[in-house]
Design a protein around this nucleic acid. Structure first.
Length: 206
DNA sequence: ATACTGATGGCCT
DNA sequence: GGCCATCAGTATA
């Protein structure tokens, strides 16, 4: 077995806005029984704290956002719009709340399982949105606060196949009212699995 | 292509 | 009671 190179907690212990684009291209790994579902992260958004009116942590700690104040590299899974779960990874300098929302992944492994969890949609619709990818990977509140820096049901690794060169672009975040000026959405330009919503002020980052 | 709408329920003021 | 870090469907062009 190839040794898995899991992204360590130190990676996440930096400014959320710096960590977010760094997660693009990494592999999100979901282990269910003896099955491994893997997706390449292609779209993310950064959410910070007191300085970010779009963040759940904007008004300070509450029962729901408690994970945002916990150890870097843990999962923050919340339920929204009465239907969907969203997956975040806690990321910020020590002592401050912050998280990176995973908005889209490109399926790498475990396609059959993903199709089963999300029936009646085409493959490109499988994981191209925050609520879609959690459903395709069977991620719900039971994984809230899961440590994603160790081997377990949910973690992030370096890709084990060579990275095809890609452009990273940035824009405003999707679906937020407040904080609409901040360009804290990052995505792999042209990747077919990026969500359909369009942010404003799209420019090339690298 | 864009625009809107209903579903659905927990969280916060 | 209002508000969502959404999605799938429908309508209109």
């Amino acid at each position: 077995m190839i040794p898995s190179r899991i992204i360590p907690a130190e990676f996440y212990a930096r400014d959320t806005v710096k960590v977010a684009p760094g997660l693009l291209g990494k592999w999100l790994v979901r282990v269910i029984g003896n099955k491994k579902l893997i997706g390449r992260i292609v779209e993310v958004e950064a959410y910070r704290g007191r300085d970010d009116p779009a963040s759940h942590a904007f008004r300070g700690p509450t029962p729901r956002n408690a994970p945002m104040y916990r150890e870097r590299g843990r999962a923050y899974v919340y339920f929204t719009y009465g239907n969907h779960y969203c997956l975040n990874i806690i990321a910020q300098k020590p002592g401050k709340p912050g998280a990176v929302l995973l908005r889209a992944i490109e399926p790498v492994k475990g396609l059959k399982s993903m199709r089963r969890f999300r029936p009646n949609v085409s493959d490109t619709e499988l994981t191209n949105g925050p609520g879609k990818l959690t459903k395709a990977l069977a991620i719900d509140k039971s994984l809230n606060e899961q440590d994603m820096t160790v081997e377990g049901p949910l973690f992030v690794t370096e890709p084990q196949t060579p990275e095809t060169t890609c452009e990273v672009w940035r824009s405003t975040r999707i679906g937020v009212r407040e904080g609409a000026d901040k360009r804290w959405r990052f995505y792999v330009k042209g990747n077919p699995y990026v969500s359909k919503g369009r942010g404003l002020m799209e420019t090339k980052l690298r």
